[in-house]
Computed example of a mutant assay.
Amino acid sequence: MADEFGKGLAIGTGAGLIWMVLAGWYNTPSFEGAQLTGAGPENPGAYDALGIMVKNGLFWFTILGMLTFWVVIPAARELRAQMAGE
């Protein structure tokens, strides 16, 4: 169980940090307004569009990765143990 927790934590911290950096670049219009959740650029160039796609992918990778290692895998192991009669 500890290795699943460690993997989920590593995914959460690593991908979450990169997401926060990219969200800071693309979604922080000013320090007085919304930070990390502001509107994105209106006409992104090729590299900006790629960065925004990576940012969105990392957000979902963070959420789904942590849920997988913290909820789905332990629940599947528990269900398999219950089905085996242990």
Rank of each mutant, 00 (worst) to 15 (best):
L67V: 15
A75E: 03
L64W: 04
T37G: 13
G65C: 00
V21N: 06
E78I: 03
G24A: 04
I11D: 05
A81M: 02
G45I: 14
V72T: 01
A76S: 02
R80C: 01
I63F: 06
L58G: 02
D3S: 14
A15G: 13
W60P: 00
M20N: 15
T28H: 01
A10R: 13
A84W: 00
T68M: 04
G85M: 01
V72L: 03
M53N: 14
R77I: 03
Q35K: 14
E78W: 11
N56Q: 09
E78M: 10
W60M: 04
G6N: 09
G85Q: 02
G51L: 05
L67F: 11
F61H: 06
M53K: 15
V21A: 11
E4A: 11
I52S: 13
W70E: 00
A49C: 04
A39H: 14
Q82A: 08
F69P: 00
M53H: 13
M66Y: 01
M53S: 15
Q82D: 02
A39E: 14
G12L: 13
A39L: 14
A84M: 01
E32A: 15
A39Y: 11
R77L: 03
G51M: 05
G65H: 01
L17H: 14
G14M: 05
G8V: 03
E86S: 10
I63N: 00
G51Y: 02
N27H: 15
E78D: 08
I18R: 09
T68G: 12
G6P: 03
A2Y: 12
P44S: 08
A81E: 01
G24W: 09
Q35E: 12
P74M: 01
M53G: 11
W19A: 12
I63P: 01
I52M: 07
I73S: 05
F59K: 07
L17W: 12
L58P: 03
G16L: 02
W19F: 13
G38K: 03
M66A: 07
I52H: 03
I52V: 10
Q35W: 09
P44G: 05
I18N: 12
L58A: 00
W19E: 08
Y26I: 08
T68R: 09
G14C: 04
L17K: 11
Y26H: 10
A81D: 00
N56S: 11
P44A: 05
W70H: 00
G24D: 08
L79S: 01
Y26L: 08
E32Y: 13
L50V: 10
K7I: 09
P41L: 05
T37R: 15
E86F: 04
A75H: 05
M66H: 01
Y47A: 14
W60N: 10
M53D: 13
F31G: 15
V71P: 01
T37S: 15
G85C: 00
G45D: 07
A49F: 04
M83I: 10
N43H: 11
N43S: 13
M83E: 06
G24T: 12
W19V: 12
E42M: 10
V21H: 09
E4W: 12
A76W: 04
T13N: 08
K7D: 05
A39T: 14
G51I: 08
R80V: 06
G14L: 03
F69S: 02
E42K: 13
L67W: 12
G33I: 09
M20A: 15
